[in-house]
Design a protein around this nucleic acid. Structure first.
Lengths: 106, 106
DNA sequence: TATTTGCGAAACCAATAGGTTGCATTTATA
DNA sequence: TATAAATGCAACCTATTGGTTTCGCAAATA
């Protein structure tokens, strides 16, 4: 099934994983210690994150280090940028209104 | 059940709805015409968007206009900002590497 | 007033999500 | 070499999701 970045970040545990491995690469075992779930559950999350290329793996002996693919996060940013324009415009309009009030008060 | 902005934007139809009502407020019927689903399904999506305050309603007679609460989108932006710092830093480091290569070649 | 229109809510349903436990496999270690 | 550790994968289970159809209600309209 085709995974999607937005669906990937929908789950709070996955967002937490992303937050952790953004700092430094971590193994599934190390990650699992941070959550109240089994290692296998964490592995499932990592699989989903890998499928949508938010995460890459690096094998070191019998350990696998997972690291965030920060570039992929830009996809969310890209989608958001459109709305960022809107809220900045809205804010500017509010700013105008406020300065008008200010001016008429003078 | 407590709804979450990230869960709300996970669904592609909901993202499309957000995109539409960002431009101008729309009724459920008008929205439903854009999708391959029933009006009731759209209404369900609107309910979810309303629950997490991504959307506000304005009644006009028997019609209800739904509009995007752009401010709420900032919540996503806020979460993202942390990673934006990282990808900007990484980019700068790459930039340094590149300029070093350039300099040693001179 | 009778009918149509726009809507939300409820009941239902199949598919998916997220968790578990129980393997098998590969690598490190005693 | 035998054992322990780190991991992925499959089978299974329950709750949730996203859709449908049916209904009731309020507002517009004939």
């Amino acid at each position: 099934m085709r995974r999607d970045v937005f669906q990937a970040i929908a789950d709070p545990t996955r967002r937490a994983i992303i937050g952790l491995i953004a700092i430094q690469a971590m193994t599934p075992n190390a990650l699992a210690e941070h959550f109240n779930t089994s290692r296998q559950a964490v592995s499932k999350h990592l699989r989903i994150l890998t499928e949508c290329e938010l995460v890459k793996q690096q094998q070191k002996g019998r350990e696998i280090y997972y690291q965030l693919e920060v570039q992929k996060m830009k996809e969310i940013d890209k989608w958001l940028s459109r709305f960022r324009k809107i809220w900045e415009t809205r804010f500017n309009e509010l700013d105008k209104v406020l300065s008008n009030i200010k001016n008429t008060k003078k």
